[in-house]
Design a protein around this nucleic acid. Structure first.
Lengths: 342, 342
DNA sequence: CTGTTAGCGCATTCAT
DNA sequence: ATGAATGCGCTAACAG
């Protein structure tokens, strides 16, 4: 029912030319006030909305942003997406979301597809597989095509562009330190994201805190989670030859998962073992006990990334601003899973 | 750096005409094998990718789907989105995601924007506010513009279109019945989605099961959650004048939240109170005790919705197929939060 | 087998 | 103050 109404049809109906109608709708002062009114009324009557595809082609900008996310089921990324969406809509942009599913191939394909005219720029968090391959050529190529990229959270030094990250090293350092100064003697680190920039920084922070604050015979214990079921088995036997009293986990799920294994072993949280996780999401709030966690401010992060991208998109192209990296400071949210002081 | 390479440029470089180049790249047998090869090689060399916006304008189809979701932070919707994305990409489509944030206005605006040429059709789950306003005109208008809509989960009889839902009534009925036949005398129903089609069906199922299977003096107890903090207060006092031994919750978060309140009151789950929730997500798997839950098969649901939409988009337009509603059967996943038999 | 032409819907420069 | 003409990049009908 009904083909969409176009400028051409409005021109017929109003007995003005296409260009007059176009200008009138744009409130161009070239056109007399009277016709502007008339045309607008008509457009309203027929419910005219300009075809955005045609406009994109003409203007050579789409007013849409491509977003590539490794995994939408992780609460942190969902939160960032909320922030991106919110800010984008507020500034008149749409977003096209692709999920890389931690796969290099999907990441490359999605970017290539969207880079063929569908978007003006990208907001991307790098997939695990891409880190393993260490191949960032697709990102560099995109930037070279004049499609700005903002990387967030999972970033790399190998690509020059705007970035938004959190202070991973410091946050991890502080969390570990707090456990130690509150009396923990054996703090381990658990991570399902070992290959990513984020995962590495958090490990480094943990190690540094150990060196600075633990007793000299304390050793760094880093447990990598590739697959949760396997990890459960491994960790249960691990607990039999090791006593631990503190855990820092690189994300929310691994924290809760590990905590539940510990409780399953008959240990008490936080009396016997203190647990701190990263990412403040629904899981953390509603676990039992509720998880003490490092809030990464995902929504805010998404908003900042979007703002940065759109700034670059709309800036005068001759002024090539320096690329900047914004670091968001995390906040420790104290709940029931860790006994920490002050 | 570098303007994108176009057909025109390839034409210059190859000394063929634009149309020849276009046809050659499309492997059109009109063109001699030799030139086809030559042109393709050149295109490869220059890394040519067709401008999708121009193609969309020409073909009057964008190969992208608009997805409107009320809240990406709810695990169920995130899962559906994963299914949609997966299927869409597999069938050569992109998706543009908008989050209505349960707001009528955002829902309307997003749809209008995307309906202006950006997408070929929609996959939508209706916002709470839209249900309250009972205004579905924007959906009907979209369908009348020849933009097919598939509604999922949160649907309405007031819009004629394809739909994908789960057997909410039956699932809720069965869950309630199971609790009763396993010995629960006082089963309450908790819902944060009371206004939606889904919420209503689940309440109905609960009530019917009560009528069919409970003792005659059992009364229907339905607690609505508008805001979690308020609910916590209310529920804590509620527990003081009521004894309950069973809970059916309309989603995952409300189930866990309520369960934690109960545990906080010193009651044991499942010994004193059995809890069953809807949506099988990360929360359910990792709660303590793990939640017995109705799996809505979100990913599959998303895939089916996408398939239905694309089928309609690609069918011969003269054959106007009947609209159909697909009902997905849920599965009860037994974990530790409910004592139920068989 | 190849090229010319037209047009998708819009914005814009250049006449009038 | 208005309109004609052009072109964004592509496909396709039609001519040769």
């Amino acid at each position: 029912m009904s083909d969409p109404i176009t400028l051409k049809k409005l021109a017929h109906l109003s007995n003005f030319s296409i260009s007059t109608v176009s200008k009138a709708l744009a409130d161009n002062p070239e056109i007399s006030k009277g016709t502007r009114e008339k045309v607008k009324k008509l457009a309203e009557l027929y419910n005219y909305t300009p075809n955005l595809v045609a406009r994109s082609l003409k203007q050579r900008r789409t007013k849409t942003i491509g977003v590539i996310i490794p995994n939408i089921l992780a609460h942190f990324f969902a939160k960032v997406l909320v922030g991106i969406e919110k800010k984008a809509v507020a500034l008149g942009y749409n977003i096209i979301t692709c999920i890389s599913d931690e796969s290099y191939d999907k990441e490359v394909k999605s970017i290539q597809m969207l880079a063929s005219g569908s978007v003006d720029g990208f907001i991307i968090s790098i997939s695990k597989e891409t880190y393993i391959k260490e191949d960032y050529q697709h990102l560099i190529a995109t930037i070279n095509k004049n499609l700005p990229v903002v990387l967030f959270d999972r970033v790399t030094e190998n690509v020059l562009c705007d970035k938004v990250i959190i202070n991973d090293f410091e946050s991890s350092y502080d969390a570990t330190k707090k456990l130690i100064t509150s009396g923990c003697k054996n703090v381990i680190f658990v991570s399902p994201i070992n290959h990513t920039s984020v995962g590495i920084e958090r490990v480094n922070g943990y190690n540094k805190a150990l060196k600075d604050h633990a007793t000299s015979n304390a050793t760094s214990q880093i447990l990598i989670i590739e697959e949760y079921k396997e990890f459960a088995q491994y960790f249960n036997t691990y607990l039999e030859d090791h006593t631990i009293d503190g855990i820092v986990a690189a994300d929310e799920l691994s924290a809760i998962y590990t905590m539940n294994l510990i409780i399953g072993k008959g240990l008490r949280v936080p009396e016997d073992v203190s647990v701190i996780g990263f990412t403040d999401g629904i899981l953390s709030e509603n676990s039992n006990p509720p998880l003490t966690t490092v809030d990464q401010h995902g929504i805010e992060l998404g908003e900042i990334a979007t703002k940065k991208l759109i700034n670059r998109l709309e800036q005068d192209n001759s002024i090539q601003n320096e690329y900047t990296t914004t670091t968001i400071k995390t906040t420790l949210i104290k709940r029931g899973s860790a006994r920490i002081e002050d």
